[in-house]
Amino acid sequence: MSLKDEMLCSKTHEYVVKQGSEYIIGLTDYAIDQLGDIVFLELPEVGTEFAKDETFANIESVKAASEIYMPVGGKVTAVNEELVDAPEKLNDDCYENGWLIKIEASDFENESTDLLNYENYKKEVE
C-alpha cells in the first residue's frame, strides 16, 4: 500500500494519513505543482491545537503566498523542521519526506467525512 492509497484529501489540497496512533498532514502533489517553486514555509509549534479548517501553516511560492488548513482538528505532536530550512524540497517530494506536521486527532471519524480519497480528489480538482 502506498501513501496515496491510504490518504484522504481536502478540497483545499491538504492530505491526512494515519501513522500509528498519529496522523500525518501535508500538501498534495497537485497543490505543490500548482504553486510552483516553494520558497517559504512557516509551521506551528509542537503542542498547538487547531480546529478543523483552521490555518496552521503558511507557504509561499515565487508567485504567491497561501495558507494551509487543518483537514481535521487536533494537537500538533511534531513538525518537519528540515522543510522550514529547505522548503524547496517540497517540489521534489511532498509525501515521504515532505510531510508538514503530525497530529493527535481530536475526532477523526466525524471530521473526515467530507474528505476524499486521492483518486476522487484528483477528479475533483482537475
Binding site: 510552483g36 517553486d37 515565487v62 508567485k63 517540489n91
Partner: peptide, 8 residues
C-alpha cells in the same frame, strides 16, 4: 505563459 519549467 507564466512558467514552462520553474520560475527560479
Amino acid at each position: 505563459p507564466v512558467q514552462y519549467s520553474s520560475i527560479i
